[in-house]
């Protein structure tokens, strides 16, 4: 009986300590809200930032670019995240955009595919099913196999909005990760897929779009077309809280550049 009592006491103490540690000093909060595509970038930035500033908590609410912009307009978050440039009316409504990074999307085919270059229109036609055979774009005879990402994926959203193929793509496969897309394209001679620029490797062939191969330079210069900006939206003429300003400055600093690159985007600074 004594033993059981002792165990119970020890357990009680352990629980007590756990709670005591949880409810420590109050913390400052930076809230971000918006684009799901920016999850990796903001996630790794926030993680690195919170290691340097343990007294500040950065939260991220993945709701989509549109909701993030609305949220910052209505003052429900400190920084809105958008994976498209702000529209003029949104800027007129009192928002300032700061481009944090650029996101290049590579179009990949199997290494055995002789095609090296497609125009943006050809890519759109291929994904909407108007072009169905590789011979129509200068390749071998073979039905084109369209590989894409699942609904809700940021890469899919980016690709479809740049090529203007929203809700029109006739996918043969919808895979749930960049790695799966690359593996599938590398094993099927007639496949075409898209993946974040940072993730592609030698196992597949990256196509030039309108004659420009994607690279950090061509994405930065804007010559490579399948790209979009990652934007931080803030309320014009209204100062950020100290903590939010610190995070904002940190995200744009040269210190953050390798972290952004590590998360798959092209940093501007």
């Amino acid at each position: 009986m004594k033993k059981i009592l002792a165990i119970a006491l020890v357990a009680l103490c352990a629980v007590g300590f756990a709670f005591a540690n949880g409810a420590s000093e109050s913390t400052q909060n930076v809230s971000t809200d918006g684009s799901t595509s920016m999850e990796a970038v903001i996630g790794s930035l926030a993680e690195a930032f919170m290691i340097e500033h343990p007294e500040i908590t950065v939260t991220y609410n993945p709701t989509g670019s549109g909701s993030g912009i609305t949220a910052v307009q209505e003052g429900r978050c400190d920084i809105g995240l958008s994976s498209r440039a702000l529209h003029d009316d949104e800027k007129a409504a009192g928002l300032t955009e700061t481009v944090l990074a650029l996101d290049g999307i590579a179009i990949i085919v199997n290494n055995s595919n002789p095609v090296t270059d497609l125009t943006l229109e050809q890519i759109a036609d291929i994904y909407t099913g108007k072009i169905i055979n590789w011979s129509e774009v200068g390749g071998n005879d073979g039905a084109i196999v369209l590989i894409g990402r699942e609904a809700g994926s940021g890469t899919r959203d980016g690709f479809e909005s740049i090529t203007g193929t929203e809700d029109l793509c006739q996918y043969r496969q919808e895979l749930t990760s960049t790695g799966d897309v690359i593996t599938t394209v590398s094993t099927n001679p007639n496949a075409i897929g898209y993946a974040s620029l940072s993730a592609v490797s030698d196992s597949t062939k990256t196509l030039a779009v309108n004659g420009v191969l994607p690279s950090e330079e061509t994405v930065l210069s804007g010559e490579y077309l399948v790209q979009r900006p990652f934007v931080m939206a803030t309320r014009s003429g209204e100062a950020l809280s100290d903590a939010a300003q610190m995070f904002y400055d940190y995200a744009l600093s040269s210190e953050a550049a390798p972290i952004i690159a590590g998360a798959g985007a092209v940093p501007l600074n």
């Binding site: 073979g142 039905a143 084109i144 196999v145 043969r172 496969q173 799966d180 094993t187 099927n188």
Partner: peptide
């Protein structure tokens, strides 16, 4: 399945994609 079965189905049944 992804690395062996899918290419095999593609070749045996002569379909554009084995998935």
């Amino acid at each position: 399945g992804m690395l062996i079965l899918i290419p095999a189905i593609m070749n045996i049944f002569n379909v554009p994609d084995g998935a």
